[in-house]
Design a binder for these strands. Structure first.
Length: 297
DNA sequence: CACCAGGCAAGCC
DNA sequence: GGCTTGCATGGT
C-alpha cells in the first residue's frame, strides 16, 4: 500500500479492501457519521472520533484521504487503527474457499476492516449496545462524551473525547441519567468503579489469553457472552472471537443450518468453519445480513 | 396500542 | 446446565 503526505493530508493511493461505508456501517464503531465530501466531489466522507482523536476521512478517485493528519500521526496511530498491516484480500480468499455463503458476504462487504479500537471505549460502548438499536446506541454514546468527555478542536470543529474510567467512577446514577442509557447506567458505573479502583486492570486483561480475558471481562455487570466477544474482537484485536447477536444467529440459521439453532450451536459451527478468522467472517456476515435483510421474516 | 432493539442478570428447575 | 422474565428508553 502506497502512502503519500500532501497538503497536510495522509493519502492512501489506490487503497484495496478499504471502503468507508463498509468500515463505519458494519456496527463495530458508533462514533463515525457520514458528512458531505470536503472536496465537493460528491464522494463518501465520514467524520468521527477515536478515543481523544478526531478524523475527517474521505474517498477520492480510489484514494483514501485522512484530512489534517501528519506522517507522525498516521504512523503513530491511524495505520494501526485501520489495521493497515493486514492482508484482507488473503482473508477473504481463505474464507470464501469452498463456502458460497462467505463468498457472497465477503463480496458484499469487501471493504470492511476491523478497527483496532480503545479497550475501555469498547467495554462501555458494548455494554450500552445490549438490547438496544444502533441509532440509539450512537445517541447515548454521544451524550456520554458531550457531558463527561474533554473538549477538543480539530479542523474548525469541536468534539469531545470518550470519558475515562476515573471520570465516570465519580458519578452517581442521577448524574449519569442525562445520557438516558436506561437500565444500563448501573452497568456503566460498575465497570467504571472496577476499572478506576484497580479491580479491573485493562493492561492485565490485555496480557491474558482470550478465554481468560473473556472470563475477566464477564466479571463486569452487563458484560455477558456476546458483549465480551465484541470487546475481545474490537478492543483487544482477538480476531478469532465470533460475537453471536440476533442478526448473526438469524443469518447462520438461515444459511447454514436451515433451521433454528441455539447460540452455542452457532458459535460451535463458526469456530469449526472459520476458526482463527471468525471475527472477520462475523463482520462480513453481519454487514451482509443487515444490508440485504437476509433471513428476516 | 403492542412489539422490538448488536443482551444480561437473577430467579427458577 | 438450560429456560423464563424484567429491564429503561425510543422508534415503528
Amino acid at each position: 500500500m502506497e502512502i503519500k503526505y500532501v497538503n497536510g493530508c495522509a493519502v492512501l493511493k489506490n487503497a484495496e479492501d478499504f471502503k468507508l461505508r463498509h468500515i463505519f456501517d458494519c456496527g463495530q464503531t458508533f462514533r463515525f457519521d457520514p458528512v458531505p465530501d470536503p472536496l465537493g466531489g460528491g464522494e463518501t466522507a465520514y467524520f468521527g472520533i477515536a478515543g481523544s482523536r478526531a478524523l475527517l476521512i474521505s474517498e477520492h478517485k480510489g484514494d483514501i484521504i485522512l484530512h489534517g493528519v501528519s506522517e507522525r500521526e498516521f504512523c503513530g496511530f491511524w495505520y494501526d487503527y485501520f489495521d493497515l498491516g493486514r492482508d484482507y484480500g488473503q482473508i477473504k480468499r481463505t474464507l470464501a474457499c469452498g463456502d458460497e455463503i462467505m463468498k457472497e458476504a465477503a463480496g458484499y462487504g469487501g471493504g470492511i476492516r476491523i478497527l483496532r479500537q480503545d479497550l475501555w471505549e469498547m467495554i462501555i460502548s458494548f455494554i450500552i449496545s445490549a438490547s438496544n438499536n444502533i441509532p440509539r446506541i450512537k445517541g447515548i454514546i454521544d451524550r456520554l462524551c458531550k457531558n463527561f468527555g474533554d473538549k477538543y478542536e480539530y479542523m474548525g470543529r469541536t468534539y469531545f473525547s470518550f470519558p475515562s474510567a476515573q471520570k465516570l467512577a465519580g458519578l452517581c446514577t442521577e448524574e449519569l441519567s442525562v445520557i438516558r442509557a436506561g437500565f444500563r447506567d448501573k452497568y456503566i458505573l460498575d465497570a467504571a468503579a472496577k476499572a478506576a479502583g484497580g479491580e479491573l486492570s485493562l493492561e492485565y486483561i490485555r496480557s491474558l489469553p482470550s478465554a481468560e480475558a473473556k472470563a475477566e471481562l464477564m466479571k463486569i455487570k452487563g458484560v455477558g457472552n456476546k458483549v465480551a466477544d465484541c470487546i475481545l474482537l474490537f478492543g483487544l484485536g482477538r480476531t478469532d472471537a465470533f460475537p453471536v447477536d440476533v442478526w448473526i444467529k438469524r443469518i447462520m440459521e438461515h444459511c447454514y443450518f436451515g433451521r433454528e439453532a441455539s447460540v452455542s450451536e452457532v458459535s460451535g459451527l463458526a469456530h469449526e468453519k472459520f476458526g482463527e478468522l471468525g471475527g472477520f467472517a462475523q463482520q462480513y456476515l453481519f454487514f451482509w445480513a443487515r444490508g440485504s435483510k437476509i433471513g428476516v421474516g
